[in-house]
Structure formats: structure tokens, C-alpha cells
């Protein structure tokens, strides 16, 4: 099941042009593709870059109903919306659209509660590996070795595996996707929209401003993250993990591009030592091994 571009073209425009997003913004690409795939979405946005790119009140770039809410309140507010719309008998799709700060860190308990209750919500996490709207501080999603404004010598800890934490909640659908593979993302969103309950989609969304990369290569970085094995593409349904067609060949390290091909295009990895690169490579392999156990 792979979607064709003409079908995507028929979808409504959800993000209006002339907004506050930086040139080459990865999350804008992720948002456009994901939200346009949904039927009558209502989007909850906690503090994150998405609360900034919508521009200044009273003008808004989002062309869908949007609730801006506090950092750690996305999934709870979405729970309220989903239940209220059920009570009112309205056909809508309730969405959490959160960055990695809101998902990996400060908002972890709110989504964990909503996932445990299996609320009827699609939770998207656009993952740019750090706190982008406050100017590039480390998050639980920052990979080892990456320089952020709060890890000037490179982060010393490994990146959290949010997909495995989410998987421990035994929710009906989990997927990872990258803006380097937009049709794969769109297809996964469509699939998620057919399922009831708490669904989670993690999207690799490069940030040229914070990663210190060329805005023009934002989609290429999305592809490279998959091809180097940095960002595995998979789905988890009923506890069973399936690596996606687009990314399964990178399960075998032999097929992966060298990680340097990914790192060298980003200023945040410029000062990586060979030891840090080795540790990062080990982290990636460890994650592949752990994910493979869920197959």
C-alpha cells in the first residue's frame, strides 16, 4: 500500500504559506504531510516550535482547529477533546502534535496516562533531537556526541528510545517515519487513522537552524538518517514489530551508509571525536538489536 502523489494533492491545505517557520523547516514538511492525511483533525499543540511557526495572534498559519496548551498537557487536553466530541457525536480526529521535548521529557506522564487509558488520539512526535523553539538545548532525544547550547562539548548520554517506552504501553499502533520518505509517512498516517485508540507516530524532522545544516538538504538528511541506520523505520501492531519496506535493508549494518555521511553534513556533530562516533554507532546498533527482539 503506497500512496500516489495525486491523491495527496487532493487533500486540503493545512499549513498556510507565509508563516514564522525557518527556511527549510523539517517540522513544516512533517506537519503538512501528516495533518493533511487526516479526516477533520483537531490538533493540540504544546509548547514547541509548532507553537511558534503558526505566527502571531490573531493571524494563524494553521488551517485546522488548533488548541495551544501548556507543555505537559497535550495528551490530557486531547483526551478531553476526544471524549467531548464522542459525547457530542461529532466525527473528528483528535491529534497531539508535539516535539521531542513534549514527548520524551516534560510531557511524558500526560501521554503515558492517555496511552494507558487508550484514548482515541493520534500522537505525533516530530523529533528534531532537541529543544528547538528555545534555541537548541539538549533533550532526552539528543544523540550522544551532539553539541547543543547546554551540551557544548557534546551530549554524554545516549538518546532515549521513545518508541520502546511507548511500546511498553501496548497501544494499538506505533510507527516511525522520516521526512526523507514522505509517501511512507503519509501511508502510515492513513493507516493509523483507520485504527481506534492511542496511536503514536514518531517523525524524524531535521532542523537546519539548530543542526547547523544547509536548509536545502533537510529532506536529504531525513533520507540519510534512515540509510545510515540512525533512524530505523518500523511499525508496531499488537506488540509485533515490522521493519518498513523502505528501511529494512539497513537492519544489516553491511547495507548502511557510513554514519559519517550523516554527521558531516551537520554542524552539531562537527566536533565529534572518533571515540564519540564509536559510542554513537554502538548506541544505534544497540537500538536495532532491542527493536529486533520485538519482531
Amino acid at each position: 500500500m503506497n500512496v500516489k502523489i495525486p491523491e495527496m494533492m487532493d487533500r486540503p491545505e493545512v499549513l498556510l504559506r507565509g508563516n514564522f517557520a525557518c527556511a527549510g523547516c523539517g517540522l513544516s514538511i512533517a506537519y503538512k504531510t501528516s495533518i493533511s492525511a487526516l479526516n477533520r483533525p483537531i490538533v493540540v499543540i504544546p509548547a514547541c516550535c509548532s507553537s511558534v511557526i503558526q505566527s502571531l495572534h490573531p493571524n494563524v498559519a494553521y488551517n485546522v482547529p488548533t488548541l495551544n496548551i501548556a507543555f505537559a498537557a497535550h495528551a490530557s487536553a486531547a483526551s478531553g477533546i476526544a471524549r467531548a466530541k464522542k459525547m457530542r457525536g461529532e466525527d473528528t480526529t483528535t491529534v497531539v502534535w508535539s516535539g521531542d521535548g513534549g514527548t520524551y521529557d516534560i510531557g511524558l506522564s500526560t501521554w503515558s496516562g492517555a496511552a494507558e487509558r487508550n484514548e482515541n488520539i493520534i500522537h505525533f512526535c516530530y523529533d528534531n533531537n532537541f529543544y528547538s523553539n528555545t534555541g537548541a538545548q539538549r533533550s532526552g532525544a539528543t544523540p550522544r556526541g551532539a553539541v547543543t547550547t547546554t551540551t557544548p562539548r557534546g551530549k554524554r548520554e545516549k538518546r532515549k528510545s521513545i518508541a520502546r517506552i511507548m511500546a511498553a504501553h501496548d497501544i494499538p499502533y506505533i510507527a516511525t517515519a522520516s521526512i526523507g520518505y514522505l509517501r511512507d509517512l503519509y501511508t502510515k498516517v492513513k493507516k493509523a487513522s483507520m485504527i481506534e485508540g492511542y496511536r503514536f507516530i514518531l517523525i524524524d524532522a531535521p532542523c537546519p537552524t539548530g543542526w547547523n545544516s544547509d536548509p536545502a538538504i533537510t529532506p536529504e538528511l531525513g533520507e540519510l538518517s534512515v540509510k545510515t541506520g540512525y533512524f530505523p523505520l518500523f511499525e508496531i501492531e499488537e506488540g509485533k514489530l515490522t521493519f518498513s519496506k523502505r528501511g529494512i535493508r539497513y537492519k544489516d549494518p553491511i547495507n548502511r551508509l557510513s554514519i559519517e555521511k550523516y554527521l558531516e553534513k551537520q554542524g552539531r556533530f562537527k566536533s565529534m571525536t572518533s571515540e564519540q562516533t564509536k559510542l554513537l554507532t554502538d548506541d544505534l546498533q544497540y537500538e536495532w538489536d532491542m527493536l529486533s527482539k520485538l519482531e
Binding site: 490530557s76 478531553g80 464522542k86 459525547m87
Partner: peptide, 26 residues
């Protein structure tokens, strides 16, 4: 009534804010 057994007071208020704006008495 839809009764949401939330995991904290922070989420209780988050949920009623969402539900109220979705058009229900909370």
C-alpha cells in the same frame, strides 16, 4: 457523562480545558 480517570491534577485540568473547548460542560 464521560468520566476521565486522569493520572494527575495537571492532566485533570488539561482534559477539562480540552473538553470545554470541544463544546461540553465540564
Amino acid at each position: 457523562t464521560e468520566y476521565i480517570n486522569v493520572e494527575s491534577e495537571h492532566s485533570a485540568m488539561g482534559a477539562v480545558i480540552g473538553a470545554s473547548l470541544a463544546g461540553t460542560r465540564t
